[in-house]
Amino acid sequence: MNFSQTCSISAGRQKVWDFLMDMENVSQCLPGVESMEKLEEDLYQGVYKIKVGPIALKFQGTLKFEVRDEQQWHAEMRAEAKDRRLGGGVRALLEVDLTEQGPDQTEMRVSLESHVLGKVGEFGQPVMRKKTDAILQEFARQVSEKLAGE
C-alpha cells in the first residue's frame, strides 16, 4: 500500500529538517506511538498501537533512519514491527522530502510504502488502508502545527 501527503509548513527548510531528524519529535507527531527508545545511532525500538474498532493492534519493533541526505533534503526511515498476540506484522518505508517555498515556508511531502502482514493484512486491508492514510495525514498536521507553534 502506498500513501503520500503533502503539506505546507510555516517554517524554514533547515528548521523543518532539524526537527524531523530528531526521532523524539517524529515519534511525538506520529499518533499511536506508545514508547520509543534509542538502541544505537539511527536505530530505535518502540511500541506502536493502532485500533480499528474492536481490533487493537500492538506492534513492537524497530525504526531505523536509513537515509539522511541533507543535500537533497531527503530522508528515509524503515519500520519493522510485529504484533505477537494476533500474529501479524508491518513493514513500512517512510520517505520525507522538503522543498523550499520561501524563507519561512516549506513544503513537506511524506510518502509511505507499507505492508501489513499476517491476519490483519489478510482481512482488514481496505480499512487498514484508510487508517494508515489518516495516520499519515495526522502526522503531517502535527508536524506543521508543532513547527508553526514554535
Binding site: P54, I55, R85, L86, G87, K119, V120, E122, F123, G124
Partner: peptide, 20 residues
C-alpha cells in the same frame, strides 16, 4: 470481555484471530 448475541460478526473475528 466481548458481548455476543447472534455471533455472526464476532465469531468470524474470533475465528480469524483478530479478536482475543
Amino acid at each position: 470481555a466481548k458481548i455476543v448475541a447472534g455471533g455472526t460478526a464476532l465469531v468470524i473475528m474470533l475465528n480469524q484471530r483478530l479478536l482475543v
